[in-house]
Design a protein around this nucleic acid. Structure first.
Length: 144
DNA sequence: CGGGTTTGACCAGCGC
DNA sequence: GCGCTGGTCAAACCCG
């Protein structure tokens, strides 16, 4: 259950938001379990989908883009981000839906070890755009 | 001038 | 064993 700490640490500044995040990654965890192997479970992976016009969502951390790739299942390219801190080997992947370009899938990998001095207002904005449960439970054909 | 981003090439893992 | 897809690195360019 250490993966929960990722999101909780991210929103440690606000207890209310922590609860919301907990609910969010709970949905994600379910997907990993039902989808498959513990192989993915070993790798701390948290994916959530947001409805935004921009690819990169400001979650309070600084990210450095280190790669871009076109995936066959998606018409849009996938972007690879890394945490700006050298000590922090946290990775983040961002990709859009093939059909719905307004849907952005953000996948986090790893755990942050440094504090966030960003405003919590950012999280509120992100949470406002979150629609994880619906998309994952409905499993749109475009995603697979 | 420096940091960050961009784009292409290279490499590794998996499937056939 | 070869080919394909996906992931990472690295050098060059652009912006602040």
């Amino acid at each position: 259950m250490e993966k929960h700490q990722v999101m909780l640490h991210t929103a440690s500044t606000s207890t209310a938001l922590s609860s919301h995040f907990k609910d969010v990654e709970k949905q994600v965890s379910e997907i990993s379990s039902q989808n498959q192997s513990d192989k993915e479970a070993k790798h701390h992976r948290y994916a959530f989908q947001t409805r935004s016009a921009v690819d990169v969502l400001d979650d309070g951390y600084q990210w450095r883009k280190y790669g871009k790739k076109i995936v066959k299942n998606n018409t849009f390219p996938r972007s690879y981000y890394k945490c700006a801190h050298r000590e922090c080997n946290v990775k983040k992947q961002i990709q859009r839906h093939s059909s719905d370009e307004e849907i952005v899938v953000t996948t986090y990998e790893g755990t942050h070890t440094h504090p966030v001095d960003k405003s919590v207002e950012t999280f509120d904005q992100i949470l406002g755009n979150l629609l994880i449960g619906n998309l994952f439970n409905n499993a749109p054909p475009t995603l697979e």
